[in-house]
Each structure stands twice: as structure tokens, then as C-alpha cells.
Computed example of a mutant assay.
Amino acid sequence: MRWYARELGADEEAWGNAGLLHDFDYEQHPDEHPLWGMALLREQGWPQDVIDAIAAHYAAKTGVHPTTPIQRYLFACDELSGFITAVTYVRPSKSVHEVEVKSVTKKLKTPSFAAGVNRDDVQSGAELIGLSVDEHVANCLKAMQADADKLGLSGVQ
């Protein structure tokens, strides 16, 4: 999210926070996600655009569809970033630096791989931001490779 914010001249802090916080409540409140988290963030005074982006990443539950850039990009990055992480974890090196666009797109065509990832959301997310899946994968890879150490995706030593 921060990478796309920089590319688009958007608020990197807000976009980064939306990306970081959008699923924070899922483990402890899966049935109430993201409503529980949104309520807590609202109570704590988080900016409304961050809360709205979190709502839009799960429109089926919240009824908020992604319309603003932060909302569209969060939706687009959500499933794909998790999928790229899964592709990284199955590599012997566990390094995102060795993941290529073609590796990700090939795995996307294998329904049994990371079966919990909604492939339709990956496709519609890319369309929502006006990119092909390959272009979006390439961008997300660049972003994740740039922050591989922070993400724990630099590989085994």
C-alpha cells in the first residue's frame, strides 16, 4: 500500500496504516470482522478514510464498495499480497527476491495452491485499479521485495 501511495502521490501514512490494520481483528473476531475492528478504530479516533478503506475491503459484509483510490488499492492488494507470501514460502530459499511474475500467475491457475485466496478478487482488484493481473503482480512484487526484511521475506540464511 505504501509503494502504491508513493507511486500515486497519495498519503503514504494513511495508505500504509489501512494496509496494516485492515485484518487486525480477524484472528480474535472472525465472525465480526471487519466491523469489530472498524468500531475500535473509530473509538480510538483513527481517520475516517482509513476506516472506510477497511470497510471497502470486505464489501460483502459492510456494504461499502471500493470507490476512492485508497479503497480500491486496499481491495486490490489484500488477496494478492497474501498469495505472493504463500508463493514465497514454498520456495526453498523462502525469499521473495526469487519470486517472479510468471511464478505467481502460474500458481494463481492452480486452485489447490493457497486455496483460501479468492482468485476472482485478485482479478477484479487488478481491474479496479486499471491494471492487468501481470502488471499488478509485478508492482506488488517490487513493493514486497523492497521491504522484504520488514516483511520477513528475505529468505533463510
Rank of each mutant, 00 (worst) to 15 (best):
A76G: 02
D52Y: 04
S154E: 14
P69I: 03
A55D: 05
L20E: 14
P92D: 15
G125H: 06
V156Q: 11
R91A: 01
T67P: 04
N118R: 10
L41T: 02
F83Q: 01
M38L: 08
D31K: 13
V104W: 06
W36P: 01
H33V: 06
P34I: 01
S132Q: 08
E100K: 14
L80G: 00
H29I: 01
L128H: 07
G45T: 12
A86P: 00
G9Q: 07
K106D: 11
V64L: 09
D49M: 04
Q157R: 15
L151N: 09
G63C: 02
L8A: 12
I70R: 02
Q123K: 15
A55K: 05
R72C: 07
P30V: 12
F113P: 00
G9C: 09
Y26H: 10
E43P: 11
R6N: 14
Y73I: 09
L151F: 13
D134K: 13
P111A: 09
A126L: 02
D149S: 13
T62V: 01
T85L: 08
E135T: 05
D11S: 06
E127N: 13
K142F: 12
V156C: 04
G9F: 11
D149M: 07
G63M: 03
S124Y: 13
R119K: 06
E13Y: 08
L153P: 00
P92M: 05
W36K: 13
Y73T: 07
A39V: 08
Q48L: 08
W15M: 03
F75W: 11
G116C: 10
P47N: 03
M1S: 14
A148L: 09
K150P: 04
A39S: 12
G116W: 15
P47Q: 07
K102R: 15
N17A: 11
L131N: 04
G63T: 02
T110H: 13
R91N: 04
W46C: 09
E98P: 03
T85Y: 09
V50A: 07
E127A: 15
V137G: 02
P69C: 10
C77A: 12
A146C: 11
V87P: 00
A126P: 05
M144L: 13
A18D: 08
T88A: 05
E13T: 14
L131S: 04
E79T: 02
K107P: 00
Y89F: 05
D134I: 05
L141M: 12
T62W: 00
D49S: 05
W3V: 03
G155R: 00
T68S: 10
A76N: 02
S112H: 07
H22I: 03
A146I: 10
I84Q: 00
D31T: 12
D121A: 11
L35M: 14
S81K: 06
Q145H: 08
E7V: 08
D149L: 11
E135H: 08
W36F: 15
L21A: 15
A143I: 03
G19L: 04
L141T: 07
V122K: 00
G37I: 01
G45M: 10
